[in-house]
Write a protein that binds this DNA or RNA. Sequence first.
DNA 1: GTTAATATATCGACGCCTAAAATATCAAAA
DNA 2: TTTTGATATTTTAGGCGTCGATATATTAAC
Lengths: 165, 165
Amino acid sequence: MSKKPAAAASDTETRATSEHAPDLRLWLRTLACTNLIENHIRSRLRAEFGITLPRFDLMAQLERSPQGLKMGELSKRMMVTGGNVTGITDQLVAEGLVVREDSPKDRRAYIVKLTGEGRRSFRKMAEAHETWIVELFAGMDEKQRGQLYDLLAALKRSASKAAGK
Amino acid sequence: MSKKPAAAASDTETRATSEHAPDLRLWLRTLACTNLIENHIRSRLRAEFGITLPRFDLMAQLERSPQGLKMGELSKRMMVTGGNVTGITDQLVAEGLVVREDSPKDRRAYIVKLTGEGRRSFRKMAEAHETWIVELFAGMDEKQRGQLYDLLAALKRSASKAAGK
DNA sequence: GTTAATATATCGACGCCTAAAATATCAAAA
DNA sequence: TTTTGATATTTTAGGCGTCGATATATTAAC
């Protein structure tokens, strides 16, 4: 019998982690990290501010562009489809956190902006949000975070190229 | 913090990228990479195999656990809620790719398994899927990928700890 | 100027996803 | 045994997200 040494009890775990190509494992690990952090942030935003992550994200984009953004710009930056942005914007408008202004240059387009209340509301949430992020990365030292940042830039380039930009 | 050198022309772009804490930028970059890759994989799975990413993911979990998995196990491994797994499983059962068997040990639980057709179907898709992943990471060299893998392990530990496991 | 091609945004249908409540079973204590 | 509490899954309601189709406006060709 060609008995392999330690293939005993944890055969399942072994398969689960070593059967795949290294790139696949790398991807699954990336995904696991993102899901972990995103789920955590999502539930805290909900619990402490009663807001959803997509709405927070949309507001974050607007806060970085005080001149406002067109729906299409939001779609591109948030990496979601246009129809999706329509829905999230509708909700934020209904809550008075955001306004749709007609574009003076293009009657097809809207310029979306934070309202005063939206800006105030966002800043408070953003402060908490940032401390949560800091907590989540706190177990890595400065050097590790810097390396990770650089490697992710490389990954972004690599994937953008392969995905056809 | 009192030095304010050149706050010149591109104030907006500057704000957009440097106003945030380093950890926040690191997180946003992580998210951007994940979204980029995930969106690409999602659309290719749809275009070439007519399957959704969540269904593919569920099948992938089952393929790694030929003895089958309980709904709760799937939920944990996929990092989604139980209700979600119920819906995805329903669809896969309707397509004949998966079966729900009663657990002999616990009448509350099901054991979900791939059917023969499910296994055949998955293997074909998984092969393509893996080559897509390889393509997406191909712009990084071996050393970079190894470093990234290790740093993500550190991130996973860090975030798990901060999120309360 | 009319036509055609392109761009911006919305809508409808459908599937994913969460949170919370409901249902059913198990396991252990009273 | 009966109760109590925990576990496994489903159900429900609502929001997110894609795709494909539509309406409207801009831009380019002719």
